[in-house]
């Protein structure tokens, strides 16, 4: 069975982002980029399923400009078998990504489509749900455990507001990954070398016959209001006094 994993290139999670003074966005020049942490977790899960003998092939896909290829190479170095680059310079938002993924999935015919639950740049948490709707496949989002059954089904434990929930889905299905699903592997040097020989194919939205024009526009990006600076207190007594008589919260 084939697993398709969608991955996104984002500003590294440890970077302190800077909003551009012209309000057009966030500074991206000379900033460290990485595979979105949730996407890494998704790819790791796919690789574990393959290593357990339950999948024969893991394909990674990413969409955007030429830098996507870097992210796909990382995916191949982690252990994916091949990669697909959907190439476009038009900014992509969740609905367009979902439409593109739907088209790619229709071609690739995976049994499982794995994605991270959200990208840490836009924090949207939408793409997996959208592509599941477009494909008319069942979905299990925010997965903290994934277990394949033997009736072409998968049982997924999800992290929800109240705690944990368990669903069983008939394949093919879409699963989005949450933080605690697994701890992704680092690409080893031998695997990085091997990855250079693996195939990355390229395709455009036009070839996939997908309209990627967005139905919204970003007007401006600004910094949030800064909090007023605080003070250090030197004792619990002082803390209680300030909370009571200054902040009036107790």
């Amino acid at each position: 069975m084939k697993i398709l994993v969608a991955v996104k290139r984002v500003i590294d999670y440890a970077v302190k982002i800077r909003v551009k003074p012209d309000k057009t966005g966030v500074e991206m020049n000379n900033v460290k980029m990485s595979m979105n942490p949730f996407c890494e977790i998704a790819l790791e899960e796919a690789l574990r399923i393959k290593e357990a003998g339950k999948a024969s092939e893991v394909v990674v896909v990413s969409m955007g400009g030429p830098q996507c290829v870097e992210t796909l190479r990382t995916g191949l170095a982690m252990g994916a078998d091949s990669a697909i680059h959907v190439s476009t310079d038009t900014p992509l938002y969740p609905l367009a990504v979902a439409k593109l993924l739907c088209a790619v999935a229709s071609r690739e015919q995976p049994q499982i489509l794995l994605l991270g639950k959200q990208a840490i740049d836009d924090d949207a948490n939408q793409t997996g749900q959208m592509v599941a709707g477009l494909l008319q496949w069942p979905q299990a989002t925010f997965a903290s455990k994934v277990a394949l059954g033997d009736k072409s089904d998968v049982t997924v434990e999800r992290e929800v507001d109240g705690g944990l929930e368990t669903l069983r889905l008939q394949l093919p299905a879409v699963i989005t990954t949450d933080l605690r699903l697994n701890e992704p592997r680092y690409a080893t040097l031998p695997n990085i070398m091997k990855a250079k020989k693996k195939k990355i194919s390229s395709i455009t939205p036009e070839e996939l016959k997908v309209d990627i024009q967005p139905d919204f526009m970003i007007l401006e990006v600004v910094e949030p209001a800064k909090r007023k600076g605080g003070v250090m207190v030197s004792s619990v007594d002082e803390l209680v006094d300030k909370l009571k008589n200054e902040a009036h919260v107790i």
């Binding site: 967005p214 919204f216 600004v222």
Partner: peptide, 17 residues
Amino acid sequence: RPVYAGNALSSVKYTGS
């Protein structure tokens, strides 16, 4: 809406039908 873990705020205008 907040982006980048709330370190930036994005103003978005819906232009669809």
